[in-house]
Design a protein around this nucleic acid. Structure first.
Lengths: 162, 162
DNA sequence: TTCTAAACCGACCGCCCTGGTAGGATTTAG
DNA sequence: CTAAATCCTACCAGGGCGGTCGGTTTAGAA
């Protein structure tokens, strides 16, 4: 599996916040109830989003969270990155000091590392897909579609915007 | 992390086989030594490639493995799929019968599942990157590059072949 | 015929990460 | 003051991952 539940929960949370008007704080409890997610766990998830500066919060009664920017200006690669950490297809992409055998992508002499070329392309494909999707788009998508199962043309992103 | 070490090891193994002339069996031991990988573990890895029909094998003395097709006709999405199983960005993409809360992508009434749209795009980005890379390309890349660190133009794939 | 190199197979195992819980401390509106 | 909320840290069970081990079968060579 590529992404953990943190990404799933966090993205849903962001969409939920995107539905509200900005500056109006929404409590985690409300979101947890709406989405059927464990509140205590959501706290950890939203903490990452806050530390990344994607949401802001107010403490105390009637406190809550809201988007720190309009949804149109938030790309999903920021969100996923905040939730999952660096988007890396392979261990060695994030830990250079790879003590284990797993990866030998070191810049040694001899032949170039062909697998690194492959993983770099994959990474590019993922990041491009995420960058080409804004939070606003997901909010809008979740809003309509009462009848439509999944409008096929909407799935076509990920390719360069061209 | 997106891919496990099975993918890394398996791809390296395939590249190594791609260097040899076809039908000439190469022993796992030779590959394990060349790449510095644990032999016993490689057995499990290569078993997946064999079951997927990507490599063939001969038992007994002087036995070994070879590519069942020319490297030009093997795309990396076949290889990675054989090694890692289905390429799914999120749990629910592979286990429909999701008993846990994690995913509620079920075709219920009400609003469409916006996260599924996002994950579908990501999945597309990954698969396209893998499909656009052939094993032959990696073999060739690992062959040259005595001096070149990483020719920048070579990383540009992942976009539709257009 | 026996030895040896190899593919094959299945069980096992420690580690770490993931998903989640628990319990509290702090802030603020009413 | 109290209730509602954010915030913080520690803890825990389960499962997957990376890897090992021992053994069986096959086939070439001496």
């Amino acid at each position: 599996m590529i992404f953990s539940s943190k990404a799933e929960y966090g993205v849903r949370l962001m969409i939920e916040l995107g539905r509200q008007q900005p500056e109006h704080p929404t409590s985690l409890k409300a979101i947890a109830d709406a989405e059927g997610l464990p509140l205590a766990y959501l706290e950890q998830v939203v903490a990452r989003l806050r530390r990344a500066g994607l949401v802001m919060s107010a403490r105390g009664a009637h406190g809550g969270y809201w988007l720190s920017r309009p949804a149109e200006e938030i790309t999903m690669d920021e969100v996923v990155q905040a939730l999952e950490g660096a988007i890396a297809p392979m261990e060695c992409f994030v830990h250079d000091h790879t003590e284990r055998v797993l990866c030998s992508h070191m810049p040694d002499a001899g032949r170039g590392c062909a697998t690194k070329l492959l993983w770099t392309r994959v990474q590019g494909g993922i990041i491009r897909s995420l960058q080409n999707t804004t939070l606003a788009e997901l909010v809008e998508f979740s809003g309509r579609s009462e009848i439509q199962p999944l409008p096929a043309e909407a799935i076509g992103a990920g390719a360069p915007a061209s």
